[in-house]
Write a protein that binds this DNA or RNA. Sequence first.
DNA 1: TTTTGACTTGACAATATTTGGCGAATATAG
DNA 2: CTATATTCGCCAAATATTGTCAAGTCAAAA
Lengths: 100, 100
Amino acid sequence: MKNIGDTLRALRESKGLLLREVGAELSLDPTLLSKIERNDRMPTKEQVKALSEFYEDKKNEVVIAWLSDKLVYEVQDEDLGLLAMKVAEKKIEYLKTQKS
Amino acid sequence: MKNIGDTLRALRESKGLLLREVGAELSLDPTLLSKIERNDRMPTKEQVKALSEFYEDKKNEVVIAWLSDKLVYEVQDEDLGLLAMKVAEKKIEYLKTQKS
DNA sequence: TTTTGACTTGACAATATTTGGCGAATATAG
DNA sequence: CTATATTCGCCAAATATTGTCAAGTCAAAA
């Protein structure tokens, strides 16, 4: 249950790769990747896609860390955040049944 | 479990008020309020604050409808949305224990 | 201690997104 | 038809996010 930055850093280090190496692979400026790994910048959807495919064995882990971080950020310092989150879950579940 | 627009429209109509009346009260352009009530525009945090205080007896209902809508919007059409939401909940619960 | 290499930081311009509100269009009621 | 409420389309202004570069830190190697 790590945040997106820590997740990406751990993955990169587990492969012994440098920022510049991953950056080159994904056409991502290494300094931008550095910021992403330190949770200074939120990666875009496209960047997450590229990163999750690069670390293919942990694809979902990356996407979930990113999405959940965005959700937390959305309700940070809101008293009703947790409650709203439970309501949002219900809404999503409802929308899912609608689609079928 | 309504969205923010329907919630606000129902509240306004229950009081028999016009867009222009609520708008005048909150210094909100009536056409903007119309868009908000039709879920065409997401109200800003400040607008939600003003609106929730205007409909004081339903303050939390308004805030929760708004926050949960924003959360749903954040993960719309993401396969892992619901899963990410559950992870986000855990993260928030964790952050809460940290603060104390 | 100087150099090297990896990473971090700050600042800023470029881009993208969101917002507010006007004038016109549409709808609804009398 | 007239009057009033609401909706719609558009776009300029405001705000937020992004990418990049030059400069900075830090640790290990030379």
